[in-house]
Amino acid sequence: MSSETLLQVRDLGVTFQSGSRTTVAATGVSFDLRSGEVLAVVGESGSGKSVSSLALTGLLPPPPSCVVTGSARLGGVELVGMDEAGLSAVRGRRIAYIFQEPGTSLNPVYDIGFQIGEAVRLHRPEEADVRAAVLRALADVRIDDPARVARSYPHELSGGMQQRAMIAMALACGPDLLVADEPTTALDVTIQKEIMDLLARLRAEKNMAILLITHNFGVVASFADHVQVMRNGRIVEQGPTAQVMGSPRDAYTRGLIACIPRLGEKRRRLTTLKDELRAS
């Protein structure tokens, strides 16, 4: 694995301003991410886990309604405060995103091939054969019949296939970093396993870094190298996955792990976050 740091985030903060009300969505977020590495950001809804990754490429409302502070350097280039032209060269091309609901991220009136092709035409104008690039991207995500899927419209595909198509679109331009924001939350366990296995293989093949955002420690254990636990916009704990999950220091981390029901475990009641926080 390359030890070169791809993304260096220091003291990143996101503040929303609405009228006279100020909401700090994230503050003091710092981490390093190397090529080929997977960092999982774990937290509940509203913990600020998504907002810091959206801030990387300016996918938040413009100031004054939203202010991003601190520093995020991708390959040494500062992203915070970069102009729109610079950001749009990074977005999609170097940092790509996949989201929770593939059905709502795809455009219902264009076929899958056109939508992947759009990303290629925009970010890699030097590519002569767009169609070949599209079919290659679909084959990369282990779709058996790329030509048929390229002709399909989103509603003709299952949730798992839609998410594969989204991943193909994200990877068509060979990004250095893939931000996967709850990529399997809306999917069945069997499809979840297929998608996570696929992401693990692609990361190894392409030496791509992945920022995995999730509320479920279950998917983190087998997949992430490092874990960052967020609560109310702050990082409460971070470290290697085995260490954080094996001997969590923070009561909040322990609570998030303890509240997941496990197979074969007979308990009268499920442990809640409140139980764990009260105990400490």
Partner: peptide, 14 residues
């Protein structure tokens, strides 16, 4: 629901 909220709702139903 989030896993933390899931545990609370399951306990409530029981």
């Amino acid at each position: 629901l989030d896993v933390s909220v899931q545990a609370e709702v399951v306990n409530l139903l029981q």
